[in-house]
């Protein structure tokens, strides 16, 4: 880790002002992403601005929904009574991530900005356009036919410059519930839809979100889900716990009086360059009866544009099956989730 100065900000305005004065600075919240990347030499801030004392740690509820401070821990959000009752998909997604220790440390704001888990990004000796633009993409490989270790990479939304998958569980649920991100910048405050917050890699994989370098996330808002909505998150991974998603799916669904799907929101994890909202799947589901065929069709629509790489082609089938499974579970709860 390179040397840095440590300063403690006392309010959002103070944090922004300090950031404005130090272009090489970083905010530190839980530290579980930032300190990890600093130890790896991927992040080398010269000033660390501690934003754990800005008073952004409350959760309040009103008729529009839930207002969550940026510094609320992942644990507190997942265990919040209203969240468990009204946004179960959020709670399930958070609890599917990392470990209790890490969720106790990790904050909502930090989770939105957890970089990515690509092994090449995390190894400063390896080429990576996202970390060092122009050096190449290690996961895609140097030579045709000799791709890098890209089993965990994305199949949706990739570009020739970067194929990394977004690793977050929470953000997939945020996208599915149409959450908004509250952002404070020196000039003004704004709300950004979670879905729009994340940027596809394109030619500039180093820019991952719409947050400016001098801006601060102050919180998120969860709008009320439609009446009668069911929601669920499911994650498939290499071991039963404490592992990143190979694939995941977050779905919010309502059925009309005739039992047809009249509202669906679908987001996918582990398969996209960003937490992947699939309007294609949603459109396929709308107005259809909740049958296996309809679910299959939606899953196929979701992955219609998928591009596989040498070691991650399985994510297309697995991602589809994950989505179909969640849809089935939502209309026929408990039909098989035993062991």
């Amino acid at each position: 880790m390179n040397p840095f100065r440590y300063v403690k900000a006392t309010s959002p305005a103070d944090a922004l002002a300090r950031m404005g004065r130090n272009p090489g600075a970083r905010f530190v919240a839980g530290g579980t992403t930032l300190l990890d990347l600093m130890k790896l030499g991927v992040e080398t801030p010269d000033v660390l601005i501690d934003i754990n004392h800005l008073g952004l740690d409350g959760i309040t509820e009103d008729r529009h929904g839930l207002h969550i401070g940026a510094h609320v821990s992942n644990t507190d959000l997942a265990e919040h009574d209203s969240v468990k009752k009204k946004w179960p998909v959020m709670s399930q997604a958070i609890l599917a991530g990392a470990s209790t220790q890490l969720r106790n440390m990790a904050t909502v704001g930090g989770n939105l900005l957890q970089g990515n888990r690509c092994g090449y990004f995390r190894d400063v000796a390896m080429p990576c356009n996202r970390r060092d633009p122009g050096t190449g993409c290690g996961a895609l490989g140097e030579q045709p036919g000799v791709e890098g270790i890209n089993r965990y990479c994305a199949v949706l939304g990739t570009s020739p410059s970067c194929i990394a998958a977004h690793p977050s569980d929470m953000c997939v649920a945020l996208v599915a519930v149409d959450a908004k991100v509250k952002i404070s910048s020196p000039a003004f405050d704004r709300l950004e839809r979670a879905e729009d917050f994340f940027r596809l890699p394109g030619d500039t994989p180093q820019i991952q979100t719409r947050l400016g370098p001098d801006e601060l996330i102050t919180g998120i808002e969860l709008p009320e889900l439609p009446a009668g909505a069911r929601s669920m998150y499911l994650k498939v991974r290499d071991r039963t716990s404490y592992a990143y998603a190979l694939t995941s799916a977050a779905v919010v669904l309502t059925l009309d009086a005739k039992g047809r799907i009249d509202h669906a929101r679908v987001a996918l994890g582990g398969v996209g360059s960003v937490p992947w909202r699939s309007h294609e799947a949603e459109n396929a589901l709308l107005s259809s009866p909740p049958t296996e065929e309809a679910f299959r069709a939606a899953a196929e629509a979701a992955f219609a544009g998928a591009v596989p790489y040498q070691y991650n082609g399985f994510k297309i089938a697995l991602g589809q099956d994950t989505l179909v499974r969640v849809l089935n579970e939502l209309v026929r709860p408990g039909a098989g989730e035993r062991p």
Partner: peptide
């Protein structure tokens, strides 16, 4: 190992998985 560079690409306990309690 990266097939081209020969570098270990799973050099940590999050990329090299061994069983956790839940397994």
């Amino acid at each position: 190992f990266d097939p081209y560079f020969g570098r270990v690409m799973t050099p940590n306990l999050a990329d090299y998985h061994f069983p956790v309690n839940a397994d």
